[in-house]
Structures are given as C-alpha cells and as structure tokens.
Design a protein around this nucleic acid. Structure first.
Lengths: 346, 346
DNA sequence: TGTTAGCACTCATCAAGGGAGAGTGCTAAC
DNA sequence: GTTAGCACTCTCCCTTGATGAGTGCTAACA
C-alpha cells in the first residue's frame, strides 16, 4: 500500500488536531473540521489503511485515532509546513541576546530560561565542552602562613585559583623557582599525559620541595582531570511539563523528575547524532523514561567549531513546526552571540 | 475546660498515629492500638472536648479525627519525647562531615543532600552571608597581550580572579607598582567606603595609569558590591515531597514547586525569628503556599557568629521528634566543621 | 459522678449496572 | 471508487446500593 495525496492530507489533519486538542479524533470530526470533500466513511477507509501502515493507532476499540511515533515522524519529515518564527518571538530572542553578558554560565542559563518560556516546554542546554584542559602556566601568590594561592592559567585561557598547604618555612624565591620549573616542563600537557619520566625530572630538579610538588600535583590532577567531563547541563521550565495533559499522572511526573535530577542521563538525550538540528520522537529516545516525549535539539558553535547543544523536551504531541523554528533560531543566535561577544569561561 | 493527663495521652496518641499513617483515627482504633485502659466511648467524649479546645478536627462528619495546627503545636511543645538521634544517623552525619572538603559551596550542598536523605523531606540551606566584603590584597599576573589577570584576595579570605583590559605597552614593573599602591591604600575598605579623597590619592600617585586604574576600580566595584546580598539558597530532595500522600494532588505540587523555583520566597521561610532551633507549623508560615507544611530550621555559626541557617520542610504531619533531632545535630556538626576546617569561600 | 454499652445516624469508598456518545467495520447501494 | 446505513464496541459518567468506620446521644451501671 502506498501513501497518496489524500492519505497524506488525512494524516496531516489527525496529527495537527491531536497536537492542538490532545484528544483522539474520529472520521466524522475530521470530515467536519477539515474540508477534504469526502464523507466520513471514505475517511474511515483511509484511516484503516493509515493504521495498517503504522502511522496512527487507536487507544482502545472505537475511540478515535491518535498519531503513532511513526506518524509523527512522517509528519515531521514530509507533511509539516516549515514555519517561520513569529515576529514577536524573533524580537524577543534578539532583544534578549543583545544584553551584554560576561560569563558564559549566564549566557547559557539565560538561553535555557528563554527557550522554556517561548516553547512552554522544558529546555535543556549543554554547556560548552572545554576540550582537554591542558596546563598553561601557574603562579604562586602569598595567602596565609602555611598556605599559598596557586593561580592556574590553562591553555584554553581559563583562570582558576586554588589554595595549597605548604611548609611554613618556604621562601618566596623557592616558590617562584618551583613554579618556574612546572611552567617550563608542563606547558601543554594534560595530566593524563604527564609521564613518569617528566615527574622524575621535576622531582630531581626540586629535590627539596617534595611536599609542595606533591600537593601541587594532587591539585592539578584533580583540576585538569575533572574538567574534561565538566559539561554542565542547564534545565529550564521543568514545571511546564506539569501543564501537559499527558503528565496528569503523578507516577509519570515522579519518574520524569527523577531523571531531571540526574545530569548524566540528560546529557545522553542531547548528545547529538549529527551536527545541526535533530528531532527525536518517542521511542527513538535512548532513555525509556522519555519514550512518550520528543526532543528537538541543535548544536551551537564558536568560530565554526561545535561546542555544545541546546534542546527542548516535551510530550510527543508537541507543536513541532513552531518548536523547531524556535530552537533553530535560538542556536543561530547563540552561535552569533558567543562568536561575537566571547564571554569568559570556555 | 482544662487539659488533664488523660486528654494529653489521647492527643498524643492521635498525633503519633496520624504522623505514622496519614489516616484520620477514631475512638475505637485508639482504644485498640493504645493501651489507655478506657473504652472507646470514653475516648469519644474526650475527643469531643479536644475538638472544642481546637487541638483536633474532623475532615468530614463521621470520619476520624486529625490534629489541627494547634494540636501539633501542643504536641511539639508539651507532649513529644525529645528523641535522641539514632546511632545510625549520628554515624552517617559524622562520617560524612569528616570528609575533607575545600569549598564552602560543596559543604553546603552536601549538607543539603544529607539532610533530605536522612529525613525523606525537602531540605533548605541558606548559604553563609558574607558580611561586607572588603578589599584585602591584589596582584596582577600576565595573561595575554592587552590583558592581565587581577587576583583579588578579600579580607575574609575569598580569592577571585578577573581579566582586565590594559594598554599593551604597560610593563610588569608598572603593573606591580599600581597593585602596590592599591594594596597600600585600600586594605580594609569596602567599595562603598572608598572616599573621593582616597581616589584622588591613588590617581595622583599613579597619574600615568589612569586607564588601568579606572578599569580596575570598575571591576572591584562590581565584585565587592555584588557580594553583599549573595546569600544563595540550596534545595535538596524536592522529589521527596511527591512521596507524601498529602501531595497526591497535582495542583498542590505545582504551586509548591513554583515556590521552590523562587529563591527569594524560600529565604523568607528560613530567616529565623530567633537564634537556634525553630519549629514553624502550618498556618504559622508566612507564605500561604506552605500553610499545610511545617518548617524545622536552625542556625549555624562560625566562631560564635551566626552566618546561615539550615532547615527541613515537609507536611505538617511530619515526625517532629526525629526531624528536630536530625536538624539540631546537623547544625551543630556543620558549625563544628566550619569552625574547625575553615573551608574557603566565606 | 464518671464510665460504659447500645443504637441510630452520617459519610466516604467501592463495585456494579445502565444509558449516552463517539467511533468503528462491514455490507450493500450508488 | 464513494457513500449511506447499521450493528457493534468501548469509554465516560451517573446512579445505586452495600460496606465500614466513626460519631453523638441516651440510658444503664459502679
């Protein structure tokens, strides 16, 4: 059996009506609401075909039909009118993104908030991944008796400071010497790469400062290793989920919110299968908790390099055309803001 | 009418049973479960009196009775056996608090998590307020052409770093000189206190670095001012609320979670009326969204100075004795950890 | 006088039953 | 190929009635 124009029209009508009303729709109602020029009986026959094709299903005998995952997929791929963003939304995004913001965290959380407000869904934003963080340069500064500040400048430009305990009798010159050796030997290395031989070199050059080296290395190890996976994820508008009729059930809400609390799982939802815009529908999601949700996501870039992703999650019954337009525009805007403004922190 | 010993016993039975079961309890059941040595009929008479006194109420005619806010209050003030913390919980807290943690944020969020796990309720922790943050010391470190790192050590020990744009032709010596002047003139001042005369002094001593001073001052102003109100609040175990039978209603959950999203309101719940432990029951809460919740909170200190608060929020039907023991022990432990360990960041 | 047993009454909860309504599939006519 | 007609199915919602827990009142009891 093949899809013909009339089947397409009917499927389109079913999907659009269900998106709007969240109620199963029957042949009679379709005939009344949409002007297809055929009788309910004809529509019934076509609907039986559509069900055989797997595009629609009945929640129970003699209820109306609702789209299946495959139906949504066909709708998104073939039937949907690509919708332009409303002028109003466009203005909102542009207005919000011209605010000058210094920290990347702020940009991200702001994006997340905006996205959930525009879509009335839950937004996810994956912060920029920082690549392997490698040693750039370090300095010691005096702090308190027995402690110094280690200022670490990574090669990607991030600056951090850490307090380190030291022996009280170390002089400023000795500290500077140690920092000098570290800077000379370690530039460009990530901690994973620090080979035993290098460590030996450092130890032998600084035989007297063994304790300082140890605590410095300890801290560096923690910092440089941690970072690799420190892609924070930002959630916004989780409460919007509660407005969706499909989550009137408390059990569902609970499992959903439980996943929201685990960052690791959420990242999986966003990790894009390909660059650019992705639509993942229902059972296509990796996590079974989200088998009745769809995720629209897209990647953002800095200087042509993909560094993170933003997405929106909602019930499979979502307004795909609209949400896709919003997510798409949003990533473009974010890419532009980041490339132009270059806030700190990545 | 007066409370006598028998009335007290009956009220105690009602509160304790309702805390355990969340079901209204009737005279017959009380007689069966609790060994009071009187018949259901007698208990009925006493219950009528307790209702007149306002300590218990009926959800509807011929249901059992449940405690009113006043009933809980009387229970907490007069009837409850002050309960010692279970050895198990005590050990957990002590074990967790001996983990060496460097950042205050970690200590706080860890506390919050622990608290919600032990009580199965939602925890609130108000981070330390930092008082006015005052200038301690600063250093400039090289960063990139046209930019330097300003490392700022506040008098309370917090270390921050900020990137500042400078003219490219400044030498290291000049920078060091500028920092030296700042350090000499500004130690102990908050930005609000920097008087015009002081500024003049700095300008006149460093007439050639006007631009650097301006951008440094700008940044300092932003940093030191911001801090005063930055009391972050930490929430833990919000999902635990969903396990409480009183929140089986989605509408309630929604209003509750909405408040959870607004930090400002939450702070109101915690801001203690008095030092030490506070129990706020139902309608005693300021926010009407929490009129069927109780808050147990307590303040924690560093070196005898109160700097923050921790609390637990749950339905009025909570195990007061146990939760009070946990919150109390937790603040003592936190106070000790902070005073002894002095983590960075406050 | 305080305590108890007995009794009529109230109200929520639950299961069963019975339209009403929406929708379907099939068949036969157009 | 399209349509009208019809029997059938299933959910939803309302009613009904039984059950059970609990109450207040009254009268008897120690």
């Amino acid at each position: 059996m093949q899809m013909d124009e009339r089947k397409r029209k009917i499927l389109r009508a079913i999907v659009m009506d269900y998106i709007a009303t969240a109620e199963p729709i029957g042949s009679r109602t379709i005939a009344r609401k949409f002007d297809l020029g055929v009788s309910p009986a004809t529509i019934r026959n076509e609907m039986a075909d559509l069900e055989d094709l797997g595009f629609i299903e009945q929640p129970y005998t003699s209820a109306g039909r609702i789209p299946s995952d495959a139906g949504y997929r066909y709708f998104v791929d073939c039937l949907m009118d690509p919708q332009a963003l409303s002028e109003e939304d466009k203005e909102t995004i542009e207005r919000e993104s011209t605010k000058r913001i210094h920290e990347i965290q702020e940009v991200i959380s702001h994006t997340s908030k905006l996205l959930s407000e525009l879509t009335n869904l839950t937004s996810l934003v994956l912060g920029p991944h920082k690549g392997k963080s490698t040693f750039g340069k370090m300095h010691f500064l005096p702090y308190q008796p027995g402690q110094v500040i280690m200022v670490l400048v990574k090669e990607n430009g991030v600056v951090e400071n850490h307090i380190i305990d030291i022996a009280e009798n170390l002089t400023a010159e000795e500290l500077q010497h140690v920092a000098g050796v570290f800077n000379q030997k370690m530039r460009g290395f990530s901690l994973g790469q620090v080979k035993r031989s290098l460590l030996h070199e450092i130890y032998s050059e600084l035989s007297r400062q063994r304790q300082l080296i140890d605590s410095t290395m300890d801290r560096l190890r923690a910092v440089l290793d941690d970072d690799e996976e420190e892609e924070r994820i930002y959630l916004g508008g989780t409460l919007n989920m509660l407005n969706q009729p499909e989550f009137r059930d408390l059990g569902k809400v609970k499992t959903l919110f439980k996943v929201f609390e685990e960052n690791e799982s959420l990242k999986k939802l966003l990790h894009p299968h390909q660059e650019g815009l992705n639509v993942t529908i229902g059972g296509e999601n990796i996590l079974k908790e989200f088998w009745d949700c769809s995720v629209i996501s897209s990647t953002y870039k800095v200087n042509g390099l993909t560094i993170g992703a933003v997405g929106v999650i909602g019930p499979t019954r979502m307004d795909y055309a609209n949400v896709i337009a919003i997510v798409d525009f949003m990533t473009r805007s974010l890419t532009e803001v980041l490339t132009r403004g270059r806030p700190r922190g990545y």
